[in-house]
Amino acid sequence: MINSPFVRKPASVQQVMLQVLLALVPGIAAYVWFFGAGILVQLTLASAAALAGEAAMLAIRGKPKALFLSDLSAIVTAWLIALTFPPIVPWWLTVTATLLAIVVVKQLYGGLGQNPFNPAMAAFCLMIVAYPALMSQWPAAGQLDFSSQLQLIFGGIRQVDAITGATPLDALRTALRAAANPDSQLHGLRASQLMDGPAYGMLGGKGGEWVALGFLLGGLWLLQRRIITWHIPGAFCLALAASAGLLWAVRPEGFASPVFHLASGGAMLGAFFILTDPVSGATTPRGKLLFAAGAGVLTFVIRAFGAYPDGVAFATLLMNLCVPLIDMNTQAPVFGHKKD
């Protein structure tokens, strides 16, 4: 029996997810342009694994398969995994990570809408802990052609240490630490001077900054489509820039500039696509601000003082933990109970 309202806005989870996927396209295009088509292989691998894992779990849990497979939420998770992992990780790593994300982090917690953690970020953290070496090999822009990428992804032998390095974020941190060391030959150099190398572009990592720009573009489109609100990306970027800027202003020789932080690593992807995952994020406007600001500061702290190449994943998970508390304490006053 259907009761009012009898009319509905033509909206669906599938549509929302589809728009998120579309918004990722500019970033992916930049990725392919600068880093080669290997990422497309990873995207396909992850998508296939996600669908397979989701289908299996839905079958086990006795849920309607067609309905939930077509909601595209698994694909979004898969793409985020592929986009945050190094593009040349072996195929089994991508597949395992995606399966973990879908089966354990999403479905075992109850499936769509029930997972307290962002599945993609949880998988990222698990993998970086389990395979730190594989997860830290990033090719520089234009360094590898498609066939060598394929070989790295599917081939058994990996001798990539020679040709790949850390992310610009990682490299700059190492360099900055070295610069602080009086014995090092880099001693006394500032971040801007250190960034003169071929791995760096104008703002962040070479090529990486364009990818970030692509994600920013897609994110702005999502904002315009009202799929996401300004709160999370705004607060995240502000908090990241502010905390980075503060230390940079105090000690410019020891820290990278806020612009570099915003343009490198997963900052843009995180701001517009990862932290904005509604399921595991805060929901009230004030809560979103808190949640994203916390993630921004944490990201910077982990980047500047931690041992991992990027901080977005850990920051996201840590803030996911706080969501119930944040939501509970940031409920807006309801109609007629406002003090204005």
Binding site: V13, V16, P64, L67, F68, D71, S73, G110, G111, L112, G113, Q114, T229, P278, V279, G281, T283
Partner: peptide, 9 residues
């Protein structure tokens, strides 16, 4: 068909 809430707000 009704789907789970995705807390989209």
């Amino acid at each position: 068909p009704e789907m789970p809430c995705i807390r989209c707000g």
